[in-house]
Amino acid sequence: MNAPDNDLMVEVKNLKMYFPITRGILRRKVADVKAIDDISFEIKTHETLGLVGESGCGKTTTGRCILRLYRPTSGTITFNGKEITNVRESKLKPLRSNMGAIFQDPFGSLNPRQTAGTIVGTPLIVHDMATGSELNDRVAELFNLVGLDPGMKDRVPHEFSGGQRQRIGVARALACRPSLVICDEPISALDVSIQAQIINLLEELQEQLGLTYLFIAHDLAVVQHISDRVAVMYLGRIVELTTSEELYENPLHPYTQALLSSIPIPDPKTEKTRTRIILKGEVPSPVNPPPGCHFHPRCHMAVEECSRERPPLRDIGNGHFVACIRI
């Protein structure tokens, strides 16, 4: 392999994640759910890469593959210059302390029978990073870091509000001082006012601790706000990847255009002139995706050729990648 590029924290190449559908007592494989169908991207150190797409497009699966909660079907994932695609579960432990994960549901992601302090301190115990009073100090420090009163560490998750719970989740993710944090829709289960708080907290923490984020979401406005670069996914593939300014000012892929046209503009005059691109039909099943470009059956600019060949994700200059033959 090449010498590790210091600028790249995560490098994903030709990643595929197929989940087999089995039937009968012999577990005969009848089909695959192609959750991720050959995607490649990079996450640079200290940047926030946004990953957007509608539900079922494979964003969460991508995050979980990088966390190595799944073993990818094929492709490679390189983290800090080290390939982690097929590392055995028992050898993954050092890697796990270097990656944090924040989950979507602040109610389901915290064990209801443990106190907040225990939840935040567990990663430190698992990785033998602190014991005794050192552990207590570190937990208190983490509570302060995410804006919680350390005096509340003996409470159980049920006694906290949604926003506070998500702060506990953030503290747990940061306990081992990871360099990469996978944020899997960290705000979509929260009230709008709380969403802003958590977003601001994540931004502050990134600055303070030099974190790198993979930020998975379906809310485009939020992603634009927090991300340096954004990847748009559709049915297991990345259709467009570029900086967030470029994406919002100059979206090239018809799917991205349709997505962006759905954001209401908070100005009544401009809002009236907004033209929405309404997509026809439903998202096809990832078990049996359409041939060629996955998006062509719903695309307003599709031509005959689109259904024949898969469009490659190509660079059209300035790091703007798009997978469409019509561009």
């Binding site: 909660l69 796990r96 990656m99 994960a101 979507q104 992601s109 915290l110 567990t122 698992v126 990785h127």
Partner: peptide, 11 residues
């Protein structure tokens, strides 16, 4: 539950 997933993610 996600907290089991979180446990796996932390090793």
């Amino acid at each position: 539950n996600d907290y089991v997933l979180a446990g796996r993610a932390m090793g």
